[in-house]
Design a protein around this nucleic acid. Sequence first.
DNA 1: TTTATATTTAACTAAATGGTTAAATAAGGA
DNA 2: TCCTTATTTAACCATTTAGTTAAATATAAA
Lengths: 121, 121
Amino acid sequence: MKDPLSQTFAALADPTRRVILARLSQGEASVTDLAKPFLKEMSLPAVTKHLKVLEKSGLITKTRDAQWRPCKLNGVAFREASDWLEHYRVFWEASFDRLEAYLKTVSPQVKSKGKKHGRKK
Amino acid sequence: MKDPLSQTFAALADPTRRVILARLSQGEASVTDLAKPFLKEMSLPAVTKHLKVLEKSGLITKTRDAQWRPCKLNGVAFREASDWLEHYRVFWEASFDRLEAYLKTVSPQVKSKGKKHGRKK
DNA sequence: TTTATATTTAACTAAATGGTTAAATAAGGA
DNA sequence: TCCTTATTTAACCATTTAGTTAAATATAAA
């Protein structure tokens, strides 16, 4: 059995599952609803397995409504992942600042939002 | 080949690797330094492999100094993970608020301590 | 050149992961 | 009851992952 944070990050490490989560951020959805975008690429049981991974990680919860199993996001697991990452904020902000500084040396008039191409040399 | 975000989350989904990252948040370290806490549990090549995973994901970079290979954190990959998670902030804050509300029903005199969960700045 | 230290590579293995198809279960409605 | 829809489980398979030990490579120092 893996520790909860490892389970959460492992659950996030799959693009199918991240799309499922994005869909759930719009609101509850049944297994069939969630599977719909993937049925050209994979079977329904494959989606069931992805949902099982998400559920075990705590990222979603499943309830019952007649023969449907509506799923929804569960914030707690997201927060634990975010809290862990937060300790490293200083590093990604530092590297962002370095990028900004670099962009200024390349074309000083470019504001940080504008994603222009700098020419080397 | 996996997409970058999947690679990053997969790299984070291992407690050994997270300890390595925590160590690197204190500053650069060589492979041997990083391996030291684990040599009772696993071999040096195992650590080399973990470092390879971290490097491929972009979470660390390795340089050369004589026979040593100093490693350091690379903020960019952290930021990409954080940016993805950020979209779900509203969900974990909602669940945090529900927890707070619940705690108040249990013992209403407990004030929520200074540390708030709002975005910095 | 030889030796010592630091690190990686190769070859192998066991277990986990992500998919499949076919069958089973859950629940509502005719 | 039987039929239909929704979902899960079982059995299987290929690939990836995380570890091993032994050997190879990189660099400095004696």
